[in-house]
């Protein structure tokens, strides 16, 4: 081996390290974790009066739904972005939640909304999620495993998919019996304020069950983020991993859409902030930070809206507005590879 004469002394190398741009990830995790926990506690306890046996379970239900949605949206967005190899696509932008609504509408159309309702949440949800996984893996797998497709093409395909799914849903909704339609409408415009406890429980099981494989994939996801060729070269089974991630994403999107309806930019907001904050690429750090940011945004936002502004319907509007701005900023900044 050639002798190196130009090497800097170790001390100089140490001081020449990259400047500290942000707090270490562990500090962020603690800070965000404590903030999220405090917000959840505040949401449960602030202004707690009257019949506790009535008020507290209701609040628990709502905060549970928000935490679940934060987990589902945060994890699915980060995973989806890693698989698609860019930081601007989200499952919602690619029309995944519109697909869920279309499936729900088609089921109601075929079986009748009242039949759908009498199935009860567990079976209904299981059927919907199964269909969702089947369709989304068919549609999106070829799109992302083909490799070398331009971002603009993907965005365009996503928008076309979204418009198509939404158009097909609204066509079916128009064709169906008005009374059936009202029942259906009730199904997908559930908000945090009236989440069915059984559905919440099923969702919690589904989300919890999916976070295990997602977490176990974290190292492989780090490699996947280097791009297909490098990942294959490093021994990652690309097709299998991508398929698995897309299945996880489909179910998570189904869960969050079933709980609170579509939220296009929320995931983008959360993941962009997470990457910005910790300037880390490791999923072991980014995933929990994205989830915690989601909890803070949802619970904190709801708390402020309810307690400070005394109205409680506009949180989704605020989040979508901010998320939309972030989307535009990311596009303009050109970080869209």
């Amino acid at each position: 081996m050639r002798a190196r004469t130009g090497a800097l002394p170790a001390a100089v190398v140490q001081t020449a390290r990259r400047p500290v741009r942000t707090l270490p990830p562990r500090v962020w995790l603690v800070v965000l974790g404590v903030t999220a926990a405090a917000l959840v506690a505040a949401f449960l306890l602030v202004g707690l009066e009257g019949n506790l046996a009535y008020v507290l379970p209701r609040r628990l239900n709502r905060v549970g739904a928000m935490v679940l949605v934060a987990v589902a949206v945060g994890v699915s967005t980060v995973l989806f972005q890693t698989v698609t190899g860019n930081r601007i696509l989200t499952p919602s932008i690619m029309g995944l939640d519109a697909l869920y609504i279309l499936i729900q509408t088609s089921l109601a159309f075929a079986l009748g909304a009242s039949t759908l309702l009498t199935l009860g949440p567990p079976i209904r949800f299981a059927v919907e999620v199964t269909l969702m996984v089947a369709f989304s893996s068919m549609l999106y797998r070829w799109l992302f495993t083909g490799g070398g497709r331009s971002l603009h093409l993907l965005l365009l395909v996503g928008i076309v998919f979204g418009v198509f799914f939404r158009g097909a849903s609204s066509l079916l909704q128009r064709l169906m019996d008005p009374s059936e339609y009202i029942i259906l409408q009730d199904l997908f415009f559930a908000s945090f304020n009236r989440v069915d406890p059984t559905l919440l429980l099923i969702s919690a099981v589904a989300v919890g069950g999916l976070c295990v494989p997602a977490w176990r994939l974290r190292h492989r996801l780090d490699v996947l983020a280097l791009g297909r060729d490098t990942a294959v070269g490093l021994g990652v089974d690309y097709r299998r991993t991508v398929t698995l991630v897309l299945v996880i994403c489909s179910v998570l999107v189904a869960v969050s859409t079933a709980l609170v309806g579509p939220a296009t930019f929320f995931g983008l907001l959360v993941s962009a902030l997470a990457y910005q904050l910790c300037s880390q690429f490791r999923h072991a750090v980014v995933l929990p930070i994205a989830v915690l940011l989601g909890v803070i945004a949802l619970v904190g936002g709801q708390l402020v809206l309810e307690q400070v502004f005394a109205f409680d319907t506009a949180l989704s509007i605020v989040i979508e507005f901010t998320g939309g701005l972030v989307f535009l900023a990311l596009l303009l900044k050109g970080r869209v590879r």
Partner: peptide, 8 residues
């Protein structure tokens, strides 16, 4: 070898 992730 284009990287979408920022790493050292």
């Amino acid at each position: 070898n284009q990287l979408t992730v920022r790493l050292s």
